[in-house]
Simulated assay, not measured.
Amino acid sequence: MSDSQAGLRRRAAVKYPLELKTLALFAFLLLLSLRNLLEAEHKDAVFYGFGSLAAICLFGFIYLFARRAGGRAELTIRYGSVEVNGLPLTPSEIRDIRMDGPIVGIVPRGRRVPPVRLCLDIRDANDRKALILWAAQHNVPVRKGRFMRWL
């Protein structure tokens, strides 16, 4: 019997987190590096350092903003796995699940910080409870509290 026939498949309503603090940090660093870039000498190594920092911050800011605005996140809870944006994860591949209110991060084995692509904003409490129940059934630890995300 497949999981959809047994009623053991649940598609959760999720979005990507907005990450306002990260966006604000990138914007601040971008503006700071642009200011320093305009004041630096053109042949100085500091000029290239601030230019690189400005490019990295601009890329990070655009990536996070575009991801939130245009990306559609998907979370499907099945009997033996969790599928995040088309990536199936079995319980043996998951180190732990971290929750900070509606923000959920799934940490794969071998990682300490959840990657951004595995961080989701699950607004519906029933969907969060379904994920917690799935984790408890498969002995996947669930940690509550603030956590970092990694690009």
Rank of each mutant, 00 (worst) to 15 (best):
L25W: 14
W150E: 12
L25R: 08
A136P: 00
E39H: 10
S92M: 08
D127P: 01
T22M: 11
R78M: 06
V14A: 06
E93F: 05
P17S: 03
L118N: 10
Q5T: 08
I62E: 01
E39Y: 05
D44P: 02
M99W: 00
V113T: 15
C119S: 14
E83S: 00
P114W: 04
G49A: 11
A27K: 10
I56A: 15
S4W: 11
S92H: 09
T76E: 15
V113W: 04
Y16C: 10
R95E: 14
R128P: 01
D100F: 07
L53R: 10
A69S: 08
A13T: 12
K15E: 14
A6W: 04
L8A: 11
H138G: 05
L25F: 15
D100M: 06
A45W: 15
M148C: 01
P114V: 02
K144I: 06
D96S: 12
M1E: 10
G70D: 00
N36F: 13
L38Q: 12
L120R: 04
G71Y: 07
G70H: 10
D96A: 11
L29M: 13
L30Y: 10
P141N: 09
D124C: 01
P115E: 09
F28R: 06
A27P: 09
G105E: 05
R10E: 05
Y48T: 03
L37D: 04
F59H: 12
L118C: 03
L89K: 04
P114S: 06
N126H: 06
M99H: 00
V82N: 01
A12D: 01
R67H: 11
L75Q: 03
D3L: 04
R112Q: 12
R10V: 02
V84D: 04
L75C: 07
D127A: 03
D124A: 11
I94P: 03
C119D: 02
A6I: 02
G49N: 04
E74D: 12
D100E: 13
A130V: 03
K43E: 13
A6P: 01
I132F: 00
G110H: 03
F147E: 09
R11H: 11
A125K: 07
G60T: 07
S52G: 15
P17Y: 04
I132H: 00
A125T: 08
R68T: 05
I77F: 02
R123N: 07
A130P: 01
G80H: 11
L64N: 14
Y63Q: 14
R98E: 09
N139K: 14
F147W: 05
K129M: 07
F147L: 07
A135N: 03
A73K: 05
S81T: 01
L89P: 01
P114F: 04
Y79M: 09
D127N: 02
R146P: 02
L23D: 07
